[in-house]
């Protein structure tokens, strides 16, 4: 028991200016309450955030790195999907 690891949690923090929670790292905790507290101590010590989400890493389903080709390569030669072919009037400025 003493050598058993606590479950791993993924931590997401919303910064003061940011709109979305961003993944910042992971940590270990016995339950969700401890995970939030640990996230507060580990990831918000320098006022990085105003809100914390934690998710059990086991509940994150990820794409398989070996599927990278079929998953993402087809998008590479479809430049017309990028909005780079429009002339933007000068008075609009930066978009």
């Amino acid at each position: 028991m003493a050598n058993e690891n606590w479950p791993l949690w993924e931590v997401f923090i919303r910064s003061r200016q940011g709109l979305n929670h961003k993944h910042v790292g992971s940590l270990r905790a016995a339950d969700q309450e401890m995970a939030i507290e640990n996230a507060r101590d580990v990831y918000t010590r320098r006022s990085e955030g105003v809100s914390i989400w934690v998710v059990l890493s086991a509940n994150v389903h990820a794409s398989n790195p070996s599927d990278k080709g079929p998953m993402f390569d087809p998008a590479e030669d479809k430049v017309y999907r990028h909005p780079t072919f429009y002339d933007i009037p000068d008075e609009i400025g930066h978009m």
Binding site: W6, L27, R28, E37, N38, D41, V42, R45
Partner: peptide, 11 residues
């Protein structure tokens, strides 16, 4: 005892 708690107690 663990990294997370090390940081917590030092805070």
């Amino acid at each position: 005892p663990i990294l997370e708690e090390d940081i917590a107690i030092i805070n």
